[in-house]
Simulated assay, not measured.
Amino acid sequence: MVTAILNPLVQEVLDLIGIFAFALSGALLAVRKRFDIVGIVVLAEVTALGGGVFRDLVIGAVPPVAFTDLSYFGTPLIAAVAVFFWHPRLARIRRFVLFFDAIGLGVFCVAGSVKALNYGMEPWATIALGAATAIGGGAIRDVLAGEIPALLHPESEIYAVPALLGSAIVALLAITGTLTPITSAIAALLAVVVRLLALRYGWRAPLARGSL
């Protein structure tokens, strides 16, 4: 068993950064779909909190921190209100949705892996849970907005791979005793960069050959 060494404050900061980024992506998608203020708030909340709630339920951190810390609910609300009033200044909303989604993906895969390690999960399990934390909220967001989740869309650029990469780096850092706030930030940054490069250059996972 490997234990992460990041303190609870760093864990919370990572969570809140990822929550805010994902909330922005959810709220912006809601605007693009012409949702009202209630829809914008709901999509921001579920996008920001969905992956973390799943992680906490799996590792036994109950009730999930999203239901015990007001800042976890308040942060998406702030993001939703900001998008509601200032979205006209964002000339290309879809571009911003993808950008903030990439940031949330990178931060959450690291935060999810670190919390799993702190709860005594084995490295292989922390990789899976880190990735699930990162992609869970986005998948829920897309389903509620009536879109095929990026995770499953055949024409979508790679989505799970950057999350798995960031989570795997965290597990490796923990095993080697080099997991620190700085190295965890680097892991998150690498996941974000890979996702943005995939969007820029159209990197996609291979499809099965032929058709049924």
Rank of each mutant, 00 (worst) to 15 (best):
G177H: 06
V81R: 09
G74V: 14
A111Y: 12
L164R: 03
L77I: 14
A79F: 09
L90P: 07
V97Q: 03
A134Q: 03
L173D: 01
G177K: 04
A79W: 04
F108T: 01
G137H: 04
L105D: 08
S113H: 00
A160F: 07
L179V: 02
A116F: 06
A125H: 04
L173Q: 05
T126A: 11
A160V: 14
W86N: 12
L77N: 01
T133Q: 06
F100I: 08
G74A: 15
L152Y: 15
I158T: 04
H87A: 14
G137A: 00
G130F: 03
A128P: 05
F96R: 09
P149N: 03
T75L: 15
G166P: 02
A134N: 05
H153S: 13
A132G: 12
S167T: 03
T180F: 06
L172G: 02
S156D: 09
A160T: 06
P123I: 00
L144E: 05
A145T: 01
L151C: 13
E122M: 03
H87D: 11
S167P: 05
S71K: 12
V83A: 15
A102E: 09
W124H: 13
H153C: 10
R92M: 11
G177S: 07
V97A: 07
P123K: 01
A128M: 08
G120V: 06
E122C: 00
I158H: 05
N118F: 03
R141M: 08
R94V: 06
I158K: 08
A82I: 13
V81Q: 13
L179F: 05
A171V: 06
F99W: 10
Y72K: 14
T178H: 02
I148C: 07
A168C: 07
L70R: 09
T126V: 15
V170P: 09
S156L: 14
R141F: 12
G104W: 12
I127S: 04
P88A: 09
A185G: 15
A150V: 09
A125S: 13
P181C: 07
L105Q: 09
I93P: 13
E155M: 07
A171P: 08
I175L: 10
D142W: 10
L179T: 00
R92L: 14
D142H: 01
E147N: 11
L77Y: 09
R94C: 00
F100D: 04
I182Y: 12
P181Y: 08
G120Q: 04
A116Q: 05
S71E: 00
G138C: 05
A171Y: 02
W86V: 06
L70K: 12
A132H: 01
E147C: 04
T133A: 06
W86D: 03
F99P: 10
V110L: 10
S156G: 12
A134P: 03
T183I: 01
R92S: 14
I148A: 11
W86H: 11
P76L: 12
A111K: 09
T176N: 13
P162C: 07
Y159N: 12
A91S: 13
F108R: 04
G74I: 06
L165D: 01
G130P: 05
A102I: 10
E122S: 13
L98N: 12
R92F: 14
A171Q: 03
M121W: 10
L151I: 15
